[in-house]
Write a protein that binds this DNA or RNA. Structure first.
Lengths: 86, 86, 86, 86
DNA sequence: AACGCATAAGTAAGAC
DNA sequence: GTCTTACTTATGCGTT
Protein backbone atom coordinates (compact mmCIF):
# COMPACT_ATOMS: atom_id res chain seq x y z
CA UNK A 1 0.00 0.00 0.00
CA UNK A 2 2.02 3.01 -1.23
CA UNK A 3 1.31 6.72 -1.76
CA UNK A 4 0.40 6.02 -5.38
CA UNK A 5 -2.90 4.58 -4.20
CA UNK A 6 -5.92 6.69 -3.28
CA UNK A 7 -5.97 7.54 0.38
CA UNK A 8 -9.37 6.03 0.98
CA UNK A 9 -8.09 2.58 0.14
CA UNK A 10 -5.25 2.68 2.60
CA UNK A 11 -7.62 3.95 5.25
CA UNK A 12 -9.92 1.01 4.63
CA UNK A 13 -6.95 -1.33 4.81
CA UNK A 14 -5.89 0.10 8.14
CA UNK A 15 -9.42 -0.19 9.44
CA UNK A 16 -9.62 -3.78 8.29
CA UNK A 17 -6.30 -4.66 9.87
CA UNK A 18 -7.42 -3.10 13.11
CA UNK A 19 -10.72 -4.97 13.15
CA UNK A 20 -9.00 -8.26 12.54
CA UNK A 21 -6.46 -7.69 15.25
CA UNK A 22 -9.19 -6.91 17.74
CA UNK A 23 -11.03 -10.07 16.79
CA UNK A 24 -7.90 -12.15 17.06
CA UNK A 25 -7.08 -10.77 20.47
CA UNK A 26 -10.58 -11.55 21.73
CA UNK A 27 -10.50 -15.04 20.29
CA UNK A 28 -7.27 -15.69 22.11
CA UNK A 29 -8.87 -14.69 25.39
CA UNK A 30 -11.84 -16.89 24.64
CA UNK A 31 -9.64 -19.85 23.91
CA UNK A 32 -7.82 -19.27 27.17
CA UNK A 33 -11.04 -19.41 29.14
CA UNK A 34 -12.20 -22.50 27.27
CA UNK A 35 -8.96 -24.09 28.41
CA UNK A 36 -9.68 -23.13 32.00
CA UNK A 37 -13.08 -24.76 31.77
CA UNK A 38 -11.52 -27.93 30.45
CA UNK A 39 -9.17 -27.90 33.40
CA UNK A 40 -12.03 -27.68 35.86
CA UNK A 41 -13.75 -30.67 34.26
CA UNK A 42 -10.48 -32.57 34.39
CA UNK A 43 -10.14 -31.76 38.06
CA UNK A 44 -13.72 -32.86 38.69
CA UNK A 45 -13.08 -36.13 36.93
CA UNK A 46 -9.94 -36.66 38.96
CA UNK A 47 -12.13 -36.35 42.06
CA UNK A 48 -14.45 -39.06 40.86
CA UNK A 49 -17.27 -37.03 39.35
CA UNK A 50 -19.08 -38.09 36.20
CA UNK A 51 -18.28 -35.27 33.81
CA UNK A 52 -21.12 -36.10 31.47
CA UNK A 53 -23.65 -35.62 34.25
CA UNK A 54 -21.81 -32.48 35.31
CA UNK A 55 -22.18 -31.02 31.85
CA UNK A 56 -25.85 -31.76 31.85
CA UNK A 57 -26.38 -29.97 35.12
CA UNK A 58 -24.54 -26.93 33.89
CA UNK A 59 -26.61 -27.04 30.74
CA UNK A 60 -29.90 -27.33 32.61
CA UNK A 61 -29.03 -24.48 34.93
CA UNK A 62 -28.15 -22.35 31.95
CA UNK A 63 -31.69 -22.15 30.68
CA UNK A 64 -33.09 -19.06 32.20
CA UNK A 65 -35.85 -20.43 34.37
CA UNK A 66 -38.19 -17.54 33.83
CA UNK A 67 -38.08 -17.73 30.08
CA UNK A 68 -38.19 -21.48 30.24
CA UNK A 69 -41.43 -21.61 32.15
CA UNK A 70 -42.90 -18.95 29.93
CA UNK A 71 -42.54 -21.34 27.03
CA UNK A 72 -43.57 -24.25 29.20
CA UNK A 73 -47.14 -22.99 29.16
CA UNK A 74 -47.65 -23.45 25.44
CA UNK A 75 -45.72 -26.65 25.52
CA UNK A 76 -47.85 -28.15 28.27
CA UNK A 77 -50.96 -27.26 26.35
CA UNK A 78 -49.78 -29.12 23.30
CA UNK A 79 -48.50 -32.05 25.27
CA UNK A 80 -51.84 -32.44 26.99
CA UNK A 81 -53.48 -32.37 23.59
CA UNK A 82 -51.31 -35.32 22.65
CA UNK A 83 -51.93 -37.27 25.82
CA UNK A 84 -48.28 -36.75 26.74
CA UNK A 85 -48.99 -34.92 29.97
CA UNK A 86 -46.23 -35.66 32.46
CA UNK B 1 -28.94 -32.37 52.63
CA UNK B 2 -29.43 -32.88 56.41
CA UNK B 3 -27.37 -34.36 59.24
CA UNK B 4 -29.01 -37.73 58.67
CA UNK B 5 -26.73 -38.27 55.69
CA UNK B 6 -23.15 -39.49 56.01
CA UNK B 7 -20.64 -36.68 56.15
CA UNK B 8 -18.83 -37.81 53.03
CA UNK B 9 -21.90 -37.08 50.94
CA UNK B 10 -22.22 -33.54 52.09
CA UNK B 11 -18.53 -33.01 51.45
CA UNK B 12 -18.99 -34.30 47.93
CA UNK B 13 -21.98 -32.05 47.50
CA UNK B 14 -19.97 -29.03 48.57
CA UNK B 15 -17.19 -29.97 46.22
CA UNK B 16 -19.65 -30.44 43.40
CA UNK B 17 -21.31 -27.13 44.05
CA UNK B 18 -17.97 -25.41 44.02
CA UNK B 19 -16.93 -27.02 40.76
CA UNK B 20 -20.15 -26.04 39.09
CA UNK B 21 -19.91 -22.48 40.26
CA UNK B 22 -16.40 -22.19 38.90
CA UNK B 23 -17.53 -23.56 35.56
CA UNK B 24 -20.49 -21.23 35.43
CA UNK B 25 -18.34 -18.23 36.20
CA UNK B 26 -15.91 -19.15 33.44
CA UNK B 27 -18.69 -19.77 30.96
CA UNK B 28 -20.11 -16.37 31.72
CA UNK B 29 -16.77 -14.78 30.96
CA UNK B 30 -16.51 -16.79 27.78
CA UNK B 31 -19.98 -15.74 26.68
CA UNK B 32 -19.08 -12.15 27.40
CA UNK B 33 -16.07 -12.31 25.12
CA UNK B 34 -18.10 -14.07 22.44
CA UNK B 35 -20.47 -11.13 22.65
CA UNK B 36 -17.57 -8.72 22.24
CA UNK B 37 -16.48 -10.56 19.12
CA UNK B 38 -19.98 -10.34 17.73
CA UNK B 39 -19.91 -6.62 18.39
CA UNK B 40 -16.71 -6.18 16.46
CA UNK B 41 -18.20 -8.00 13.48
CA UNK B 42 -21.29 -5.80 13.74
CA UNK B 43 -19.09 -2.72 13.76
CA UNK B 44 -17.22 -3.99 10.74
CA UNK B 45 -20.48 -4.60 8.94
CA UNK B 46 -21.67 -1.10 9.81
CA UNK B 47 -18.49 0.18 8.14
CA UNK B 48 -19.29 -1.66 4.96
CA UNK B 49 -17.14 -4.76 5.33
CA UNK B 50 -18.34 -8.19 4.23
CA UNK B 51 -18.40 -10.14 7.48
CA UNK B 52 -18.38 -13.47 5.76
CA UNK B 53 -15.12 -12.64 4.04
CA UNK B 54 -13.80 -11.25 7.32
CA UNK B 55 -14.52 -14.52 9.07
CA UNK B 56 -12.74 -16.41 6.37
CA UNK B 57 -9.66 -14.31 6.75
CA UNK B 58 -9.58 -14.80 10.50
CA UNK B 59 -10.03 -18.50 9.94
CA UNK B 60 -7.29 -18.66 7.35
CA UNK B 61 -4.86 -16.79 9.54
CA UNK B 62 -5.61 -19.19 12.34
CA UNK B 63 -4.40 -22.22 10.47
CA UNK B 64 -0.74 -22.88 10.72
CA UNK B 65 0.42 -21.82 7.29
CA UNK B 66 2.61 -24.83 6.77
CA UNK B 67 -0.21 -27.23 7.50
CA UNK B 68 -2.49 -25.19 5.30
CA UNK B 69 -0.42 -25.67 2.20
CA UNK B 70 -0.08 -29.33 2.97
CA UNK B 71 -3.87 -29.65 2.75
CA UNK B 72 -3.97 -27.49 -0.34
CA UNK B 73 -1.73 -29.97 -2.12
CA UNK B 74 -4.03 -32.93 -1.51
CA UNK B 75 -7.02 -30.87 -2.52
CA UNK B 76 -5.44 -29.78 -5.77
CA UNK B 77 -4.51 -33.35 -6.55
CA UNK B 78 -8.08 -34.49 -6.12
CA UNK B 79 -9.47 -31.60 -8.07
CA UNK B 80 -7.13 -32.31 -10.96
CA UNK B 81 -8.25 -35.92 -10.92
CA UNK B 82 -11.79 -34.65 -11.32
CA UNK B 83 -10.94 -32.20 -14.05
CA UNK B 84 -11.86 -29.36 -11.71
CA UNK B 85 -8.45 -27.68 -11.84
CA UNK B 86 -8.82 -23.96 -11.28
CA UNK C 1 -6.49 -37.77 -17.45
CA UNK C 2 -4.98 -39.33 -20.63
CA UNK C 3 -3.40 -42.67 -21.46
CA UNK C 4 0.04 -41.26 -20.73
CA UNK C 5 -0.71 -41.52 -17.00
CA UNK C 6 -0.33 -44.73 -15.03
CA UNK C 7 -3.50 -46.74 -14.97
CA UNK C 8 -3.76 -46.74 -11.18
CA UNK C 9 -4.22 -43.00 -11.13
CA UNK C 10 -7.11 -43.00 -13.53
CA UNK C 11 -8.69 -45.84 -11.57
CA UNK C 12 -8.44 -43.78 -8.40
CA UNK C 13 -9.92 -40.81 -10.23
CA UNK C 14 -12.87 -42.88 -11.40
CA UNK C 15 -13.40 -44.21 -7.92
CA UNK C 16 -13.28 -40.72 -6.49
CA UNK C 17 -15.72 -39.40 -9.05
CA UNK C 18 -18.07 -42.23 -8.28
CA UNK C 19 -17.92 -41.68 -4.54
CA UNK C 20 -18.62 -38.00 -4.94
CA UNK C 21 -21.55 -38.60 -7.22
CA UNK C 22 -23.07 -41.02 -4.75
CA UNK C 23 -22.68 -38.49 -1.96
CA UNK C 24 -24.18 -35.73 -4.04
CA UNK C 25 -27.15 -37.84 -4.97
CA UNK C 26 -27.79 -38.69 -1.32
CA UNK C 27 -27.45 -35.09 -0.26
CA UNK C 28 -30.01 -34.11 -2.84
CA UNK C 29 -32.45 -36.64 -1.41
CA UNK C 30 -31.75 -35.37 2.06
CA UNK C 31 -32.37 -31.80 1.02
CA UNK C 32 -35.64 -32.88 -0.57
CA UNK C 33 -36.85 -34.40 2.67
CA UNK C 34 -35.72 -31.36 4.65
CA UNK C 35 -37.90 -29.36 2.29
CA UNK C 36 -40.84 -31.63 2.99
CA UNK C 37 -40.37 -31.12 6.71
CA UNK C 38 -40.35 -27.39 6.20
CA UNK C 39 -43.60 -27.69 4.30
CA UNK C 40 -45.25 -29.53 7.14
CA UNK C 41 -44.24 -26.83 9.60
CA UNK C 42 -45.58 -24.20 7.22
CA UNK C 43 -48.85 -26.07 7.00
CA UNK C 44 -49.01 -26.34 10.77
CA UNK C 45 -48.43 -22.64 11.12
CA UNK C 46 -51.15 -21.91 8.58
CA UNK C 47 -53.48 -23.88 10.84
CA UNK C 48 -52.65 -21.75 13.82
CA UNK C 49 -50.05 -23.88 15.59
CA UNK C 50 -47.00 -22.38 17.26
CA UNK C 51 -44.12 -23.89 15.30
CA UNK C 52 -41.59 -23.21 18.01
CA UNK C 53 -43.56 -25.29 20.49
CA UNK C 54 -44.03 -27.91 17.81
CA UNK C 55 -40.30 -28.18 17.28
CA UNK C 56 -39.75 -28.54 20.98
CA UNK C 57 -42.21 -31.41 21.20
CA UNK C 58 -40.56 -33.21 18.33
CA UNK C 59 -37.19 -32.63 19.95
CA UNK C 60 -38.34 -33.93 23.33
CA UNK C 61 -39.88 -37.03 21.82
CA UNK C 62 -36.68 -37.70 19.94
CA UNK C 63 -34.69 -38.40 23.05
CA UNK C 64 -34.99 -42.07 23.53
CA UNK C 65 -36.86 -42.27 26.80
CA UNK C 66 -35.11 -45.38 27.99
CA UNK C 67 -31.65 -43.96 27.60
CA UNK C 68 -32.80 -40.66 28.95
CA UNK C 69 -34.04 -42.07 32.22
CA UNK C 70 -30.92 -44.16 32.54
CA UNK C 71 -28.97 -40.91 32.72
CA UNK C 72 -31.63 -39.32 34.87
CA UNK C 73 -30.53 -41.43 37.82
CA UNK C 74 -27.06 -39.95 38.06
CA UNK C 75 -28.42 -36.53 37.32
CA UNK C 76 -30.97 -36.70 40.13
CA UNK C 77 -28.28 -37.75 42.54
CA UNK C 78 -26.21 -34.72 41.71
CA UNK C 79 -29.14 -32.37 41.72
CA UNK C 80 -30.15 -33.54 45.16
CA UNK C 81 -26.62 -32.91 46.27
CA UNK C 82 -27.03 -29.34 45.10
CA UNK C 83 -30.41 -28.82 46.69
CA UNK C 84 -31.92 -28.58 43.23
CA UNK C 85 -34.29 -31.51 43.64
CA UNK C 86 -37.46 -30.91 41.68
CA UNK D 1 -59.01 -36.11 25.73
CA UNK D 2 -62.58 -37.01 26.76
CA UNK D 3 -66.10 -35.96 25.76
CA UNK D 4 -66.10 -33.35 28.50
CA UNK D 5 -63.87 -31.15 26.32
CA UNK D 6 -65.18 -29.02 23.49
CA UNK D 7 -65.05 -30.79 20.18
CA UNK D 8 -62.75 -28.21 18.62
CA UNK D 9 -59.99 -29.08 21.04
CA UNK D 10 -60.00 -32.74 20.26
CA UNK D 11 -60.01 -31.91 16.58
CA UNK D 12 -56.97 -29.71 17.10
CA UNK D 13 -55.31 -32.48 19.08
CA UNK D 14 -55.87 -34.94 16.28
CA UNK D 15 -54.52 -32.49 13.76
CA UNK D 16 -51.51 -31.84 15.94
CA UNK D 17 -50.83 -35.52 16.43
CA UNK D 18 -51.00 -36.06 12.71
CA UNK D 19 -48.62 -33.22 11.97
CA UNK D 20 -46.11 -34.48 14.47
CA UNK D 21 -46.24 -38.00 13.14
CA UNK D 22 -45.63 -36.77 9.63
CA UNK D 23 -42.65 -34.76 10.80
CA UNK D 24 -41.24 -37.66 12.74
CA UNK D 25 -41.59 -39.98 9.79
CA UNK D 26 -39.77 -37.53 7.53
CA UNK D 27 -37.03 -36.98 10.10
CA UNK D 28 -36.49 -40.70 10.29
CA UNK D 29 -36.04 -40.86 6.54
CA UNK D 30 -33.68 -37.94 6.67
CA UNK D 31 -31.63 -39.58 9.40
CA UNK D 32 -31.48 -42.75 7.33
CA UNK D 33 -30.02 -40.89 4.40
CA UNK D 34 -27.57 -39.07 6.62
CA UNK D 35 -26.45 -42.50 7.75
CA UNK D 36 -25.99 -43.59 4.16
CA UNK D 37 -23.80 -40.58 3.51
CA UNK D 38 -21.69 -41.42 6.52
CA UNK D 39 -21.30 -44.93 5.14
CA UNK D 40 -20.04 -43.62 1.82
CA UNK D 41 -17.44 -41.50 3.57
CA UNK D 42 -16.41 -44.52 5.62
CA UNK D 43 -16.04 -46.56 2.45
CA UNK D 44 -13.98 -43.80 0.88
CA UNK D 45 -11.74 -43.70 3.90
CA UNK D 46 -11.31 -47.47 3.78
CA UNK D 47 -10.11 -47.02 0.21
CA UNK D 48 -7.47 -44.57 1.29
CA UNK D 49 -9.15 -41.27 0.51
CA UNK D 50 -8.79 -38.27 2.77
CA UNK D 51 -12.36 -37.65 3.88
CA UNK D 52 -11.66 -34.11 4.93
CA UNK D 53 -10.57 -33.20 1.42
CA UNK D 54 -13.53 -35.12 0.06
CA UNK D 55 -15.93 -33.06 2.13
CA UNK D 56 -14.33 -29.89 0.92
CA UNK D 57 -14.77 -30.91 -2.69
CA UNK D 58 -18.41 -31.74 -2.17
CA UNK D 59 -18.85 -28.41 -0.44
CA UNK D 60 -17.08 -26.50 -3.19
CA UNK D 61 -19.11 -28.15 -5.91
CA UNK D 62 -22.27 -27.25 -4.04
CA UNK D 63 -21.68 -23.54 -4.32
CA UNK D 64 -22.88 -22.03 -7.48
CA UNK D 65 -19.62 -21.49 -9.30
CA UNK D 66 -20.47 -17.97 -10.35
CA UNK D 67 -21.23 -16.93 -6.81
CA UNK D 68 -18.10 -18.64 -5.63
CA UNK D 69 -15.85 -16.51 -7.76
CA UNK D 70 -17.70 -13.43 -6.69
CA UNK D 71 -16.78 -14.22 -3.10
CA UNK D 72 -13.22 -15.04 -4.11
CA UNK D 73 -12.84 -11.56 -5.56
CA UNK D 74 -13.81 -9.84 -2.32
CA UNK D 75 -11.57 -12.13 -0.38
CA UNK D 76 -8.58 -11.44 -2.62
CA UNK D 77 -9.20 -7.75 -2.32
CA UNK D 78 -9.14 -7.93 1.46
CA UNK D 79 -6.08 -10.14 1.50
CA UNK D 80 -4.21 -7.77 -0.76
CA UNK D 81 -5.11 -4.93 1.56
CA UNK D 82 -3.55 -6.92 4.38
CA UNK D 83 -0.46 -7.82 2.43
CA UNK D 84 -1.52 -11.47 2.56
CA UNK D 85 -1.61 -11.94 -1.21
CA UNK D 86 -0.93 -15.55 -2.08
C1' DA E 1 -33.91 -6.08 3.18
C1' DA E 2 -31.64 -7.14 7.51
C1' DC E 3 -31.64 -9.32 11.78
C1' DG E 4 -31.57 -13.15 14.87
C1' DC E 5 -32.42 -17.97 15.33
C1' DA E 6 -32.09 -22.73 14.45
C1' DT E 7 -30.37 -26.31 12.20
C1' DA E 8 -26.43 -28.50 9.98
C1' DA E 9 -21.55 -29.10 8.94
C1' DG E 10 -16.99 -29.49 10.33
C1' DT E 11 -13.53 -29.88 13.82
C1' DA E 12 -11.33 -31.43 17.84
C1' DA E 13 -11.18 -33.97 22.03
C1' DG E 14 -11.98 -38.00 24.87
C1' DA E 15 -13.26 -43.02 25.57
C1' DC E 16 -12.69 -47.68 24.59
C1' DG F 1 -5.60 -46.25 17.03
C1' DT F 2 -10.33 -45.73 15.92
C1' DC F 3 -14.59 -44.29 17.00
C1' DT F 4 -17.93 -41.70 19.04
C1' DT F 5 -19.36 -37.56 21.12
C1' DA F 6 -19.32 -32.64 22.14
C1' DC F 7 -18.27 -28.09 20.77
C1' DT F 8 -17.65 -24.50 17.44
C1' DT F 9 -18.58 -22.34 13.33
C1' DA F 10 -21.34 -21.47 9.27
C1' DT F 11 -25.14 -21.32 6.43
C1' DG F 12 -29.81 -20.81 5.50
C1' DC F 13 -34.47 -19.78 6.97
C1' DG F 14 -38.16 -17.25 9.03
C1' DT F 15 -39.39 -12.95 10.91
C1' DT F 16 -39.75 -8.02 11.40
Amino acid sequence: MTETLPQTESVAADQLKCLIERIERLEEEKAGIAGDIKDVYAEAKANGFDTKALRRIVSIRKQDHAERQEQEAILDLYMQALGMAA
